[in-house]
């Protein structure tokens, strides 16, 4: 059953007199528990597509259904709420709130969700343990390495229990060792939690792990294939 369904998505930017087609007639379905990668060169529209799926940006035309909600019909407040309960985000860098500890960062989304203190604390500690940061949960982001910060971001994205995690080039700023460790964690969590992951990347290490690779070029899907990565 598809969790995400995009129908005829166009994104047009107006730059002065010129119209730039960032996305053209995107049609895509992603099923529950998929571990899919959006790949393509810079400027191909990966981040724009992720932003539209995440409700951070709006499509010029088309429909976006996530878990049977048409997010194009939601107002700003409803979109906020939708992101809060249904989506998890992992960004390329500067993912965390600097004045909060790792534990507090992981708890933050659950605080906004209105979960009880005990529940969110238990879940935050559990996910920090999974990402291997149980001994650093009280450290602030400035006291963590880039790889550790991304692991906190992964823990935060998953602890809130989203159906879909959108990750925009999560390994771009990490060295090989950290990138590999992060991918191991995400892959493991995707399997265990049955959470759907959609990455934008041009990191071959990510592509090697992805079960499905959707290739974008000039704002169009030019290839969409399931791969048998183990």
């Amino acid at each position: 059953m598809s969790l995400l369904k995009l129908e005829h998505i166009d994104k047009i930017y107006q730059q002065g007199q010129i119209q730039v087609h960032a996305l053209s007639d995107i049609n895509l379905e992603v099923d529950e528990s998929e571990f899919a990668a959006l790949v393509g060169p810079s400027g191909s529209g990966k981040t724009t597509l992720l932003n539209i799926i995440g409700g951070l940006d709006t499509a010029s035309t088309g429909h976006i259904h996530i878990n049977s909600s048409n997010i194009a019909e939601l107002n700003e407040q409803e979109l906020s709420k939708f992101r809060l309960f249904e989506l998890g985000f992992i960004f390329q860098a500067y993912n965390l709130v600097p004045v909060l500890s790792a534990l507090e960062n992981v708890e933050l989304v659950m605080v906004l969700q209105g979960r009880p203190h005990k529940e969110r604390s238990q879940r935050a500690k559990h996910y920090l343990e999974i990402v291997g940061l149980q001994d650093m949960m009280h450290r602030r982001p400035s006291e963590l390495s880039g790889g550790q910060q991304q692991r906190v971001a992964v823990a935060r994205a998953l602890a809130a229990g989203p159906r879909l995690v959108l990750a925009d080039e999560p390994t771009a700023n990490l060295d090989s060792e950290n990138a590999s460790a992060l991918l191991d964690i995400m892959f493991k969590l995707a399997l265990e939690e049955k959470t759907t992951f959609l990455f934008s990347t041009h990191d071959p290490r990510v592509m090697e792990r992805a079960k499905r690779i959707i290739t974008l070029s000039d704002g169009k899907i030019i290839n969409d294939e399931n791969v048998n990565n183990e």
């Binding site: 995440g54 951070l56 700003e76 407040q77 906020s80 709420k81 992101r83 809060l84 309960f85 985000f89 960004f91 500067y94 993912n95 709130v97 600097p98 933050l108 989304v109 906004l112 969700q113």
Partner: peptide, 16 residues
């Protein structure tokens, strides 16, 4: 600004 964008992305509403 970027941090506020992050918070908004995570579900912070404007009035928050």
């Amino acid at each position: 600004t970027r941090e506020f964008g992050l918070l908004r992305a995570l579900g912070f509403q404007k009035n928050y």
